[in-house]
């Protein structure tokens, strides 16, 4: 915990230079809501840390129907934006007011399960992430960003600089189920998006949180929905497949057994919400 250097770069290029010069031993921190607890308790003992709070990565703008979210946009700002209500809802259901004032959207992608609720909503929206290194920026799908528990596609010298949420078709629903009404870790988080034509599903996304080593899509369940007529039968079938293909875990919040039951229940509820036409854009 004895930090010898704490850098607060004022621009992306300064941040990339520091990362290039200091290498992988430089701990990168955004809002600090995940990293600081580990440092405070001596679990993480970095000597060099870079904070991104003032690095100018906090742009939030709409362009050509896309929403661009800078990596250090806070969850409070995500909550207040109005372009994508499902992201506001995800932010409202994440942590507490003070934490949302500090935690960042980019940082949420590095939050171990059962955290990472924002990422679940982003997955359902086909979000891409911008990874910037000395050679420039590459854009990859969020689903490809995750490579395992606490591992990702970032290469040495790269920073996650922002997210692009494209204009996508369909209705969305987001449900976070925890053990308290608010500020609660997830038992399961579900984000779904369903596009329909004449009652037939043309495109479906089912994204799950606290259901595996990282936020993930229930692809087999999505295939069950595709081409079906959205209704009780298809919803039940998709929910059952989602529960089966997910990889929930036991922790202090819930057991694997309970999570699997709740995945089935809340995938069905989220799809039901779309079928009943209760929600959304």
């Amino acid at each position: 915990m004895t930090v010898t250097d704490y850098f607060l770069p004022r621009s992306l290029s300064e941040a990339l230079d520091l990362l290039g010069a200091r290498g992988p031993s430089l701990m990168v921190m955004a809002g600090g809501t995940v990293a600081m607890p580990l440092v405070n308790d001596g679990i993480s003992l970095p000597t060099q840390v870079m904070g991104l709070r003032h690095a100018g990565l906090d742009e939030l703008r709409e362009e050509d129907g896309e929403l661009y979210i800078g990596a250090t946009v806070t969850l409070t700002r995500l909550l207040r934006q109005q372009a994508l209500p499902v992201l506001s809802e995800a932010a409202r259901n994440t942590a507490s007011w003070s934490v949302r004032n500090m935690a960042t959207v980019g940082g949420n992608l590095f939050t171990p399960p059962p955290g990472g609720d924002i990422a679940v909503a982003l997955l359902a929206l086909d979000t891409s992430v911008a990874l910037t290194g000395p050679a420039g920026t590459r854009l990859i799908p969020l689903g490809a960003f995750y490579t395992g528990f606490m591992t990702n596609a970032l290469q040495d010298g790269e920073l996650l600089t922002g997210l692009r949420v494209p204009r996508v078709a369909g209705d969305t629903a987001f449900i976070k189920f925890g053990r308290k009404a608010s500020n609660t870790p997830s038992v399961v988080t579900v984000a779904v998006r369903v596009a329909r034509h004449d009652g037939t599903v043309t495109d479906a996304r089912i994204a799950l949180g606290a259901a595996g080593p990282h936020p993930l899509r229930a692809s087999a369940a999505e295939r069950v929905l595709a081409g079906s007529a959205l209704g009780p039968e298809a919803i039940e079938a998709a929910a059952a497949v989602a529960a089966e293909e997910s990889q929930p875990f036991s922790d202090g919040v819930a057991s694997e057994w309970y999570r699997r039951k709740m995945i089935r229940l809340f995938v069905a509820r989220a799809l039901d919400r779309i079928w009943q036409g209760g929600e959304d854009r």
């Binding site: 915990m1 004895t2 930090v3 308790d41 001596g42 003992l45």
Partner: peptide, 8 residues
Amino acid sequence: AAALEAVA
């Protein structure tokens, strides 16, 4: 901080 580091 030093105490935590030494403990580790």
